[in-house]
Write a protein that binds this DNA or RNA. Sequence first.
DNA 1: TTCATTTGACCCAC
DNA 2: GTGGGTCAAATGAA
Length: 290
Amino acid sequence: MAMRPKSEMSPPPAPPSPSDQRDAVIEELRKGSQLAEFLRQQVELIPEDSRRDAALANVTDITTALASSLSVLQSEREQYYCSSSSDAGHASGASGGGGVRNGAVARTRNRKAKHRRGTYGEELPIKEILTEAPENDRFHWRKYGEKKILHADFPRLYYRCGYSDEHKCPAKKYVQQQNSSDPPMFLVTLINDHTCDTLFPDEDQDQPPSSSSSANNSQVLDFSKASLSSAVGISRLKKEEDADMSVTVPSYNYTYDELSSSSLPFLSPKQWEMEMEVKSLFRRHSGDGN
DNA sequence: TTCATTTGACCCAC
DNA sequence: GTGGGTCAAATGAA
């Protein structure tokens, strides 16, 4: 965070409100959309058909991601932080949810609930990810519950790490559909880091995803900026049908200036090479004589 | 047969 | 009493 000299901070420094942060993000997304459109024009100048088409596909993904994010943020501008003390007020949109599949079965059990309601108890850290593909991260999740949430039009889905039993991995995530747009957006709340990932390094990490799924990265809206790199990684497609998902979008957490100083953890080497190539074109055509 | 998902019941903080 | 989080039997898919 940039610090200003005390002499410049004459008014009492009011911390930015959540709505201010949201407006700032919306503004950045708008700038990003303009840049993406400009980038598209530059990419169209690439002479080689294959490279141009691939780059255009990436730009299209970026544009789609920015547009959908803008849509979500704007539609929920006044709702998102209404319940600032709770996480339960995020959802909005049309009605949905599942129906009754089975008849009611009377069961008697004798057990104790392990968890507290409300503020996730003491489980930390918490990361929130806005994505079109909530299941599309590199971890294996097992669904353990689904709950209709008050004032939410979509049920909240509860997942825990698929290795929670084997390796005592405490990672969990809650998935809340945000709207009924096409594709719908989901707010994914990640709770606890994966210990299974550190015990058993992901064997696919050095295997770039197939070119057909060039952008299996989710959108990350992490206002804290602290968990940006670890929140979402290159996807491990746990099921074959995941490979058919075409709604994944590239991460837009980096500006083009930041591209040069960051390592873009979400991109495969091939994608990274392409990004660098596009970036080079971008600079050349934007009059950057350096 | 095994594994994952569904879904009503249960627990507990508020 | 309400509502969010979790459990676990029932069920379906592979």
